[in-house]
Amino acid sequence: MFQDIIHAINKATSALTQGDLSYRISLGSSKSELDDVAAAINTMLERITHLMEKTRQASNTIAHDLRRPITYARFQLEDAALHAHSEEDLRTAIAQAIKHLDHITSICGALLRIADIEAGMCRAAFTWFDLALALQDVLELYTVVAENRGLIIKATFPEHLPFYGDRTMIQQALANVLDNAIKFSPCAGIITCTAHFLPPLPTAENNGSIELKITDQGIGMTPEEMAHATERFFRAEQARHAPGFGLGLSIVQAIVQLHGGQLHLADNTPGLIVRIDIPLPFPGKSATL
């Protein structure tokens, strides 16, 4: 009996070692213990296969998405080398190529930033600060951009909002969400930004939470698109014409998770609602979220 189990496990692991990810232990008809073990191992194999597939896809998309600006830069330079008639032509082409290279730098920067945040090391830099002031600063930076496009940003939050986390990151999260709200809105419309404190539930282990909500009246997203929105490089079909790499929300997601919070997307008919909930720790035992 035990020998059967060991034999089956042995076969499965050596198949896996040799690269056969599709090998599964066959399940007998009897409800024996072997079947329980076999089922557990099969589930594990399933999971490994899935993770490997995900990793493979992720590096594929990264390679693919980097190829685009590289291709553009290459075209530009090659074309200039072959066909430029004047110094002016050459300079324009070179400036264009540099722009594409800068895009690659931005993409790499964003990917590294996500990796850094996901590694969780930045938690050491968490402090208490006033979220209201931090949000105000970002809003001020973007309000002018919104107005330029005929959009109004309406912000409502209390005068002070004690918050525990990384100030720069929270500002970046809001900036990315606002950038989307502006970018995916037609000219005219209202963007709202609200933040408030939610007291803890009697059963909760946290000290209440902060809810940050940004709504717009733009093109919005289908439920299907929302499900993929935070994936690296994801951009919905109608979004492709707008500038961007599909990394903004991936960064937001990583930042929110680092803070132990949650990111929700919902329909604003028309437009998008982005809600971020972040729990607050008790003052004093601040290091554990």
């Binding site: 964003a110 600063d137 903004g248």
Partner: peptide, 14 residues
């Protein structure tokens, strides 16, 4: 602005 990350769009120009 004491801002230390890439703001994606050219906010400064505005």
């Amino acid at each position: 602005w004491d801002y230390h990350f890439d703001p994606q769009t050219n906010v400064i120009d505005v």
